[in-house]
Design a protein around this nucleic acid. Structure first.
Lengths: 209, 209
DNA sequence: GAAAAATGAATGAATAGTCATTCAGTTTAT
DNA sequence: ATAAACTGAATGACTATTCATTCATTTTTC
């Protein structure tokens, strides 16, 4: 008999494996029950582990939630970075690729969105969430406005501000996510992308016609 | 001595007065503590009333929260309706007025936004919230797309869909609200309005140049 | 028009349930 | 054998809900 692969039912895992497993269980649980009704028992059960496990690995619930938000932000950032790398070479191609990324199923997925909105819903009352979200927004903003500026320079567009276009585009994706969350039935990826595209065409006609 | 006005310390108020007072206290409390940490004791204290008062008037916490969301939606709707009435006469004026309304301080106020986002954060896990939000979105969508269609017809715009423009505009305001919530320091009403305006100018040049 | 009776709004202490956290003991890895 | 990971019952804090009681206001009675 071949050497049996290490079964996944190994009782002990490395600290990092267990932490990630718990974070994923947290995401799943929040998307099902909401952040307010997510208990540590729910998370432990979702992970198939015991009562006390979260406190063992995260010390306190606060921590688990902060790290979950951090995880979401990093997950987004990494998709964001690889999209930037893989697309191109023109700035206009990159910008379009970024907008498409925001609407593709691996990002614009109702489960993940529910978790993002759950955290956004507490931004005003939980300073840590605000800090994490603010940092993540800044990164996004810089990348997008850099691309917009390049496009503006290339096209010699007059009366177009990179910052304004960035505000418009990033708001639009957040808002489209909300509409998907609230009205999944009425949401249509193509139509959503068309909303973004209509703006790009309108402000950068040279590049997107 | 003039007849003393009935002091506001009257111990009993009508059912409706008390309910509204409690709803307002709920909004204030949620904006400060978040929906997850808002207790009935907090709400009662904010209202200057006693422990059991919420259950007396709303039967259960669920109910108070549902009615609070309903109240927010109606409050928005009424500002929305009066903006529509007072502006005009052209559809283009009305549309611009609606967009300006969404960014004026009485709507785009961090306290109210925190409460909206708190509810949106639970939309996926609380079906009642979804229903209320969906209905309110539909009303908004119909009004805006009606105006857009009128503008399109007037201007003879080709290749512009009223629904697509509506999606873009309504997403943009939701997203701008989020950016205000997350980064109040970095938010600039003028710049936000400019983002919306840049889109309007771009898709309806005849009307907004 | 005053006193008595009735009404129902409001209180706040008591209850019952939920949940984060702890920790003594168990299992697994080295 | 020792250390580390893990368990799950126990604990204590917190909170929604209930309810007997208090009290302001209105209605009725004489």
């Amino acid at each position: 008999m071949a050497v049996a692969a290490v079964k996944s039912s190994r009782r002990t895992a490395t600290r990092e494996e267990r932490r990630q497993q718990l974070i994923l269980a947290t995401i799943k649980t929040i998307s099902k029950k909401g952040i307010g009704s997510t208990t540590l028992a729910d998370v432990a059960q979702e992970a198939g582990l015991s009562q006390g496990i979260v406190n063992l690995h995260f010390r306190a619930k606060d921590n688990l939630l902060n790290e979950t938000l951090q995880y979401l932000a990093e997950d987004y950032k990494s998709q964001f970075d690889s999209t930037l790398e893989e697309s191109g070479p023109e700035a206009a191609d990159k910008l379009l690729a970024m907008m498409e990324m925001d609407l593709k199923p691996s990002i614009c997925d109702r489960q993940k969105l529910a978790v993002w909105f759950a955290f956004w819903g507490e931004v005003k009352s939980v300073p840590t969430y605000q800090k994490i979200c603010e940092a993540y927004d800044r990164g996004y903003d810089e990348a997008i406005s850099g691309l917009c500026q390049q496009i503006i320079d290339e096209g010699g567009y007059r009366n177009v501000s990179a910052q304004v276009v960035t505000d418009a585009l990033s708001s639009m994706t957040d808002g489209l996510w909300l509409s998907y969350l609230v009205s999944p039935k009425g949401f249509d990826r193509e139509e959503a992308m068309e909303a973004v595209y209509s703006y790009l065409r309108a402000v950068f006609p040279e590049h997107y016609e």
